[in-house]
Write a protein that binds this DNA or RNA. Structure first.
Lengths: 170, 170
DNA sequence: GCAAATTAATGATTTATTCAAG
DNA sequence: CTTGAATAAATCATTAATTTGC
């Protein structure tokens, strides 16, 4: 009966010799976990975690928390991956915001001049909405009680205007 | 005159499939909106919506109603997400065994004197957790009952046992 | 071929949010 | 308004891949 994890880590010092520092899943374990994930399992319940762990223990040392962490990490990193792809697409396509992705393969209207009409936007009637909007938006026409001011400052990208949102809410 | 959206085609009968019909927020816009949401804003007033929209128009085409809908949708979806989690929990566990939380694992660091009680770890039984873990994983500390059976079959490698995962999901 | 050095993956922790009870 | 519950995001840390010099 060789111990599983003999010594997590020495307290001080370099904590060097960590032998059994962390779970190292076998390929079988990873395969099962991945398939479960692909089957749609995202955040297994405690019950599920226990069962999975129990089953996977056949293939090697494993604890429930490993399963828990695995799903957390895998889910997060899949999402991260997706997000990055989307961001890349957005960045590469342009900031011109035309719906470049013709998901709807409908008639591709050649918006030859999307041309940001920003200037017009600035003229946007600041105290009334379009008809359509007014119908929907008059419901919250109850103005809020402005108390504090909220200033929003951007990170570092000076590509955009300074934009300090001085909104009279919050 | 909501003419930001260049009408791709006046025809269209129901005015349906307008290509430009849908607002496509830029990452900057989303960032600002998200930050506002995180700052506590849930249902902005008309004034607030106008100001936000006005500011965000710097980054691309946007209308007030977009802001309005964004907040409505975001709020609703956040809530929906929570509800969904709760429902899942209730359906699958509906007991004291809450969902595994990472918070409950965290204890390793703060211990003043870790004390090499590691040997206990060696006793780690395959279907229960060590004391240390049990403290953290007490949420796992319940064995499940098997409702449905989920049989998992491996590819080809017979190096492993049959392994039929009997999990109560899917 | 082989280790030391470096880089890429990924397991494990910590931190910041969210909604909603009390 | 405060706090409980539960992440998910961000981060830390260690292991495996790989590169490199010999």
């Amino acid at each position: 009966m060789s111990g599983f994890c003999i010594k997590p880590r020495g307290s001080g010092g370099g904590g060097g010799g960590t032998k059994c520092g962390r779970w190292n899943p076998t390929t079988e374990q990873v395969k099962v976990l991945t398939d479960l994930f692909r089957s749609g399992l995202r955040t297994p319940s405690t019950d599920q975690i226990q069962k999975i762990s129990s089953q996977l223990s056949f293939y090697g040392k494993i604890e429930s928390k490993n399963v828990f962490y695995w799903f957390q990490n895998h889910k997060a990193r899949e999402r991260q991956k997706r997000r990055r792809v989307l961001v890349d697409e957005r960045n590469e396509i342009h900031r011109e915001d035309k719906v470049a992705t013709a998901k709807h393969f409908g008639e591709i209207n050649q918006v030859s001049e999307p041309e940001r009409v920003v200037e017009t936007l600035q003229l946007f009637p600041l105290n009334s909405f379009s008809e359509l909007e007014s119908e929907k938006l008059r419901f919250f026409a109850k103005e809020g009680k402005e108390n504090t001011s909220f200033s929003y400052s951007f990170g570092a990208d000076m590509n955009h205007p300074p934009l300090d949102l001085r909104l009279s809410f919050l």
